[in-house]
Design a protein around this nucleic acid. Structure first.
Length: 569
RNA sequence: CGGGGCGUAGCGCAGGUGGUAGCGCGUCGGCUUUGGGAGCCGAAGGUCGCGGGUUCAAGUCCCGCCGCCCCGACCA
């Protein structure tokens, strides 16, 4: 491809609206254009990358025996009513009507449709196991689209579904997908951690997330360096109840005027935060729920959601606290709490001695409060957010916490969809059973962004050879020079003949301009056709390693060819 | 959905106290230049996000709306 004719327009200016490196660089290098919040066009070079990512994914899916098909974007409402997700999915579902008033959604995921397909086709255990996948555009009306392709409202996803006759077989399917995923991310040059995850909205029994470590991810990952435990932070059990070996001191009432936060209270009383029993008040469907947790700990609302069995809750406002308890926020405590209030005790409070507690009177606290003597507590549940240094639930060593980007997610669904949608088959014993399902997603367009997140420097992108939009960039430094031009043209033809994917910068621009663009766009190999041609050589540079080679003209292309093939192996 | 910020040329931005819009980059034409985003000369390019109001006069002041970005809650 001649750059002079190629639809690739870079910018010298920093895009003002972008912050994440992938977002910034993809815009600046002319790979994507924004149409609306979370909606992007993929321009020719980006599409080349996307296709290569898809290629890697296809190869590995096919190798695991999965068969590709293409489901639909438009999904009728009826299917989604069957699983209850028409409403459960909420505002995130893009909904629309046809001319007859029939309702549809734009598929955000395809469990409904594929289950519908299976119940119409699969009758017998002889047809199982079955593994199907598609690479399709998905739509989710995200509350907050963010960071360009990282969280878009329209995006490309590979989704696979497994169908098995029983649980054991389903677990085998699940495992084979897990291994396929590990191979895929490795081939794509992505550092990915496999984490135990929450099944969340999609439902099911077993779930893993494939998380790329980057500061622009939305997933909080806890991992252990000594035993390789890794999990989404929201599912990590926390148990750090302290052992308090001290005498119980006499209870005392103290004035704490206007002291609202744990921070202020600790400072005001000169005690450590661990000694304070914090009350966090939630409004659950209009009713108060109080979580008592140690003052240095935060509530993990995902854990709370699981305990409550609903996501219809939020922190109570000051106004609600007043209405619920007739006192001010900051002074809710276990002593004298309104009868019948629903209460949870986090494990962190267990065994606390000489604690600071509130007693539902404004501007006062109790110090040296002791459970059993001054208030009753328990039973205990795990509601604390995990934090750096907490004990690994597997080996007890300190955990590390990192932000990451969820690129893939696997779920062993069981019969969450086949049961309500009646996807039954006849087993060898002649009985009707629901198929056992699994589903497996990879955010393809997000992967593209993740690759940039993990492969870039100040100057631009550094595409790994396997996914690069082109393998080789030939830079003609001075198009006015006939000899240079002739040599560059020849190298270009030769590279094409060798089957290399080559972009040939034949634009009438100055050297510095072309080098800057080359760094920005990030093609892994770069042949510089410049003054060394007079000595019969060209310079090859690697964008990935910074290496340089001076090569005789007649060997340059075959050398590149060899390097590219090595990289792709 | 809560909080914050921003909408002026293709991009990045400037336009105290109201007086009819500018800079840099880019684009087009010309000359010069060619190993790290060159220089000079000339030119084109604007619904100042949209609607209303105040005023002799609004990019600027007031009201409403829309869009985009960031933080939080939430999600692949």
């Amino acid at each position: 491809m001649r750059w002079s004719r190629y639809f690739l327009y870079t910018s010298k200016e920093e895009p003002a609206e972008a912050e994440a490196p992938s977002h910034r660089l993809l815009l600046k290098a002319g790979f994507i254009k924004q149409v609306a919040a979370g909606i992007y066009e993929l321009l020719p070079p980006a599409l080349r990358v996307l296709k290569k990512i898809e290629g890697v994914v296809r190869r590995e899916m096919d190798r695991s025996g999965a068969q590709e098909l293409l489901l639909t974007v438009l999904n009728p409402k009826e299917l989604w009513l069957e699983t209850g997700r028409w409403d459960a999915y909420g505002d995130e579902l893009f909904k629309l009507k046809d001319r007859h008033g029939r309702e549809y959604c734009l598929g955000p995921t395809h469990e409904e449709e594929i289950t519908d397909l299976i119940r119409k086709t699969v009758r017998s255990y002889r047809q199982l196991p079955l593994l199907l996948y598609q690479i399709q555009v998905k739509f989710r009306d995200e509350k907050r689209p963010r960071f360009g392709l990282i969280r878009a409202r329209e995006f490309i996803m590979k989704d696979a579904y497994s169908f098995d006759a029983d649980e054991e077989s389903a677990e085998l399917s699940y495992e084979s997908m897990r291994f396929a995923y590990e191979r895929i991310f490795k081939k794509l040059g992505l550092k990915v951690v496999v984490a135990e995850a929450d099944v969340g909205q999609i439902g099911g029994k077993l779930s893993h997330e494939f998380i790329a470590l980057t500061p622009y991810g939305e997933a909080k990952l806890a991992y252990c360096e000594s035993c390789s435990y890794a999990a989404n932070a929201e599912v990590v059990p926390v148990n750090d109840a302290r052992v308090w070996e001290e005498e119980e001191r006499p209870l005392k009432e103290v004035e704490t005027p206007g002291v609202r936060t744990i921070e202020e209270l600790a400072r005001f009383l000169g005690v450590e935060k661990e000694r304070i029993v914090k009350a966090v008040v939630y409004a659950v469907k209009g009713e108060p729920v109080v979580v008592f947790i140690r003052g240095d700990r935060e509530v993990d609302e995902n854990k709370l959601e699981k305990l409550l069995g609903t996501d219809e809750f939020r922190l109570a406002t000051d106004e609600e606290v007043r209405r619920f308890f007739g006192t001010e926020r900051g002074f809710i405590g276990p002593v004298g709490l309104k009868e019948g209030t629903r209460v949870f005790w986090d494990r962190s409070v267990e065994g606390i001695k000489n604690a600071v507690v509130a007693f539902n009177e404004p501007d006062k606290h109790l110090v040296n409060a002791n459970p059993g003597r001054d208030f009753s507590y328990g039973p205990f549940v795990d509601l604390a957010q995990v934090r750096e240094g907490d004990a690994c639930p597997r080996c007890g060593e300190p955990l590390r916490l990192e932000r990451g980007l969820e690129l893939g997610h696997t779920f062993l669904l069981g019969t969450r969809y086949s049961e309500p949608m009646k996807a039954y088959f006849t087993d060898r014993d002649g009985r009707e059973k629901p198929v056992v399902m699994g589903c497996y997603g990879i955010g393809i367009s997000r992967v593209l962004a993740a690759i940039v997140e993990q492969h870039h420097d100040e100057k631009g992108i550094k595409w790994p050879t396997r996914v690069a939009p082109f393998e080789l960039l030939i830079i003609l430094l001075n198009p006015k020079d006939e000899e240079l031009t002739r040599v560059a043209e020849e190298l270009y033809r030769e590279a094409l003949a060798e089957g290399l994917e080559v972009l040939y910068d034949d634009r009438d621009e100055r050297a510095g301009f072309k080098f800057a663009d080359a760094d920005l766009v990030g093609i892994p190999y770069r042949l510089v056709v410049g003054k060394k041609v007079k000595e019969g050589s060209v310079e090859l540079q690697s964008r990935l390693t910074g290496e340089r080679w001076e090569l005789p003209l007649n060997e340059a292309v075959s050398f590149v060819k060899r390097k590219v093939e090595e990289d792709k192996r």
